[in-house]
Simulated assay, not measured.
Amino acid sequence: MDTDARPTLAVWKFASCDGCQLTLLDCEDELLPLSGRVRIAHFLELSGTEGADGPAALAGTGPYDLSLVEGSVTTPEDARRIQHIRRISRRLVTIGACATAGGVQALRNFADVTDFLDAVYASPQYISTLETSTPISAHVPVDFELRGCPIDRRQLLEVITAQLAGRKPNIPHHSVCFECKRRGTTCVTVARGIPCLGPVTHAGCGALCPAYGRGCYGCFGPAERTNLDSMVPQLRDDGMSDRDILRVFRTFNAASPEYGPVPRLVGEEHEDDPREHEEDEER
């Protein structure tokens, strides 16, 4: 009989690069105390054996007190599997841009996926995939979304602690601009005319890029308020073409609904074709 009273944690991977799972492993000093309070019952990135900290029967069957899900839904099997994970999870938190906004792979949403299959695979008829890459919340209810590409480890620890304690995570919803002000970083747009997505990007990275004189690339997704009607003209004034504006908003969070107005603001004739990226590289 299992007498371990610790709450159980499961970590799941869908279409992604594993970077957000590695963020949990990178917690280092905090991971050991966490493992003393939480039973890591399923985490294949941590262990090649199902049931990393407990009987193998726990893995995939649950119930789990908290499930962390990385990655987007891109195959029919993904769509079935996330339904099962939701059923066996008391709380489900999505981590990273892929899980919260489709990720880089959501660029397929704006093209014909069969073109990619024909270009990549010698026998595409054996590949089972969906036409779109979608966030987890498009398929099941999600208790909390933690943004980032990759996520911030301090925010991850706060979310895990809050979810297991039954309280709301203390995660800010303001923009990267607030983080620049806290660091005392001079605005790269005002001072140097560098295009920056900081005003419409969710805080969490610590304003890392502006601190080194580079504009924000928007890897933490949309902030709570995104004034795109003002942002797009500002990016034009800073030297970005309409096509580049469309591309930068689709880099990390291509399926984010908050960025939906961007094609209209830059003009539908600038709708991006992923095949143009190959042509640009050839030139």
Rank of each mutant, 00 (worst) to 15 (best):
A138H: 09
D65N: 10
C27E: 01
R167N: 12
H42Y: 13
S67K: 10
R6Y: 04
Q234M: 11
D112I: 00
T8C: 11
A165I: 04
G36E: 15
A59F: 00
P261D: 02
R147Y: 15
E131A: 15
Y212R: 06
V248H: 04
E269N: 11
L66M: 07
C205F: 07
V248W: 08
R183C: 04
T75P: 03
S128D: 14
R39D: 13
A122N: 02
V232Y: 00
N253R: 03
V142P: 02
E179L: 00
A119I: 04
Q234Y: 01
L164Y: 04
I245E: 01
D78E: 09
V262P: 03
R91G: 04
L34M: 10
P222I: 07
R183W: 02
C209D: 01
G239D: 05
E281P: 00
D29F: 06
S72V: 04
R225D: 13
D29I: 07
V104K: 02
V190I: 12
H174C: 03
V176R: 12
R250E: 00
G206N: 09
P76M: 13
D237K: 15
L164K: 05
H173P: 00
D29N: 11
L32F: 13
I194V: 15
R275E: 04
R39V: 10
H84E: 08
H84A: 14
A211D: 00
L146I: 10
E258T: 08
L24F: 00
V120G: 04
L246V: 01
P172K: 03
M231T: 09
S35I: 13
Y217N: 11
G148E: 00
E28R: 15
P274E: 09
T3A: 10
L156A: 03
F178T: 14
I82E: 14
E268N: 07
E279R: 14
C216P: 05
S133A: 15
A5T: 15
R154Q: 04
I171V: 11
C196I: 05
I88E: 03
A106K: 13
Y126I: 11
G193D: 02
L46K: 06
R147M: 14
F220G: 03
L32W: 10
R214F: 05
L265H: 02
T75W: 08
Y212L: 01
Q83M: 13
R147N: 14
A191N: 11
S230H: 11
A203H: 07
A41H: 12
R147C: 13
